[in-house]
Amino acid sequence: MPEKLPDWVVARCRVIGERIRTARRHRELSQEQLANLIAVDRRTIHRYETMQRQPALSMLVLIADALEISLAELMAASNELDMREARADERPSS
Rank of each mutant, 00 (worst) to 15 (best):
R25Q: 10
D65T: 09
E80F: 12
E90M: 15
R87I: 04
D65M: 02
S58E: 05
V15I: 08
E73D: 15
A39D: 07
D7L: 12
E73P: 05
E73K: 07
S78L: 00
I38N: 04
V40K: 15
V40H: 07
A23Q: 01
N79E: 11
E80D: 14
E3G: 15
H26N: 00
I63N: 01
E49Y: 12
A76V: 02
A56H: 11
R12F: 09
N36W: 03
R14G: 04
E73H: 13
L5T: 09
E68W: 03
E28N: 14
A56M: 06
M51S: 10
R43P: 10
P55C: 06
W8T: 10
P2D: 07
E49F: 07
E68M: 06
P6D: 02
A56K: 04
E32S: 05
L71N: 00
L81G: 00
R21I: 02
A77N: 14
M59H: 14
L5N: 04
S78M: 03
D89L: 14
R21S: 05
A11P: 02
R12H: 12
V61G: 01
T44Q: 15
R91S: 02
E73F: 04
D65W: 10
W8N: 13
L37S: 14
E85K: 15
G17H: 02
R14M: 08
E49N: 05
E80I: 13
E32I: 13
P2T: 10
R14L: 01
A76I: 03
W8V: 05
S93K: 14
S58T: 05
R91H: 06
L37K: 15
I20R: 01
T22D: 07
L71W: 09
I69F: 06
R21Q: 11
A35W: 07
D7V: 09
E28Q: 13
M51F: 12
E68N: 05
E85P: 06
R47S: 04
E80P: 13
Q52E: 06
A56R: 13
A35N: 11
P6E: 03
E85G: 04
L60P: 00
S94A: 02
I38G: 01
D7S: 08
P6K: 03
R53H: 09
L57N: 06
R43Y: 08
P92T: 10
R84I: 00
P92I: 12
D82F: 10
S58Q: 08
L5G: 00
L57I: 13
A66R: 01
T22I: 12
T22W: 07
W8K: 09
H26D: 00
Y48A: 00
A77P: 02
Q31D: 08
R42Q: 15
P6N: 02
V9N: 00
L81R: 02
S30T: 15
M51N: 11
H26L: 00
Q31L: 08
Q52K: 14
R91K: 08
A88T: 04
I38K: 11
L67V: 13
L37M: 15
A66E: 14
L29N: 01
D41K: 08
P55W: 08
M51G: 05
R14Q: 12
G17I: 05
